[in-house]
């Protein structure tokens, strides 16, 4: 029988190096899979080099990191409280739809700056509302948040497709209007916004009473409750924060690179990528910000490989493989595997 034996004190540097080694191993495996799928070595190497050296690919990495980081940074706080919501996917979609309504359908006249700020707040509000619903189901009705948030994601997808193909339909094809040019933002602004969210949530997590309560509750819920931390308040707080952040991610997606929408047969996946980033970064907001750039680069690499016949579904699979490999490496750094 297998069992794990603790190696004793392991330094933070060793854990970071272990994580990086795991990421590298997972990344190598993901690349190997594309070769096994029949993609030529030249295409794989060419796409890899292009992803990390060309200015247009780097611009795409920064742009795609918006919804990924938006989801991930908020989730780091939620997961620290052991509130395992997956609603970020639906929150990104809902945030994007509401921004599209505000800027392309509502008819409100506003300048680019007002439009930008209002988009962030409105999408954040919608994301937080979804988070509130998931928290309400958990706290008041005891519903498991993983399942409820996933069901809500599917409902949001169906409703979003109805809005896109119905009230928002523009012309003979099922495609919406585009976000007007004056409201679109440059890819350089996106990491700036997610960087500010990171900073705000880092301060909230490590320099505030709420952060302390979240940490205590996540580690030992019963002890935290005994010491006067209200579990309901903690869960509602992290649900609202993570929902707001993911909703803003949806706004960044719409303002940064998506601009218009067509019916989705599968989830776009940015919210799910945020879930992966949160785990890859061990629920640290700063690490999540950096990791989201890396995970975004895998998405760009996957998109480049689409020309060689690699499906888009590969992207999430490759990212999952990398995270699984990193978690395995960290376990092996901390523990020795023994046979009994």
């Amino acid at each position: 029988m297998l069992f794990l034996e603790e190696r004793g004190r392991v330094s933070r540097l060793t854990i970071i190096l272990g994580t990086l080694a795991g990421v590298f191993a997972g990344f190598s495996l993901a690349v190997l899979l594309t070769l096994l799928a029949g993609v030529s070595l030249a295409s794989v190497l060419g796409s890899l080099i292009y992803t990390y050296t060309s200015s247009s690919a780097i611009a795409s990495i920064l742009a795609l990191s918006g919804p990924i980081a938006g989801s991930a940074i908020g989730l780091t706080i939620a997961y620290r409280a052991r509130f395992i919501t997956i609603a970020s996917e639906g929150q990104v979609i809902a945030g994007a739809i509401v921004v599209l309504w505000l800027l392309a359908y509502s008819g409100f006249k506003m300048g680019p700056l007002e439009g930008f700020i209002l988009s962030l707040f409105l999408s954040g509000f919608v994301g937080a509302s979804i988070g509130f619903l998931v928290a309400l189901l958990k706290v008041k009705l005891y519903v498991n948040e993983i399942l409820s948030s996933l069901m809500i994601n599917y409902i949001i997808l169906v409703v979003a497709n109805y809005i896109i193909g119905g009230p928002f339909r523009e012309g003979p094809f099922a495609i919406t209007r585009s976000v007007p040019h004056e409201y679109r933002v440059s890819f350089t602004l996106i990491p700036l916004v997610t960087g500010l969210i990171t900073l705000a949530l880092w301060i909230l997590m490590f320099r505030s009473k709420l952060g302390l309560a979240v940490e205590a509750y996540g580690r030992a819920p019963k002890a935290a409750e005994t010491y006067g931390h209200d579990p309901s308040r903690i869960i509602f707080s992290v649900a609202l924060i993570s929902g707001f952040s993911a909703g803003v991610g949806g706004a960044l997606m719409m303002l940064g690179f998506q601009h218009s929408m067509s019916p989705m047969s599968v989830f776009p996946g940015y919210g799910y990528m945020g879930v992966l980033v949160a785990w890859l970064s061990a629920n640290n907001p700063l690490a999540a910000f950096v990791s989201s750039l890396f995970i975004s680069s895998i998405a760009v690499y996957g998109r480049l490989l689409q020309a060689s016949g690699v499906p888009l579904g590969y992207v999430l699979g490759a990212q999952a493989l990398i995270v699984l490999s990193a978690l395995t490496a960290v376990t092996l750094v901390k523990y020795r595997v023994r046979w009994l």
Binding site: V275, L312, G313, G317, Q319, A320
Partner: peptide, 16 residues
Amino acid sequence: LLIVFLGIGLADLLAA
């Protein structure tokens, strides 16, 4: 949750 993404990714790759 990782298995969900991994399984779907590998399935799509196999189909491709």
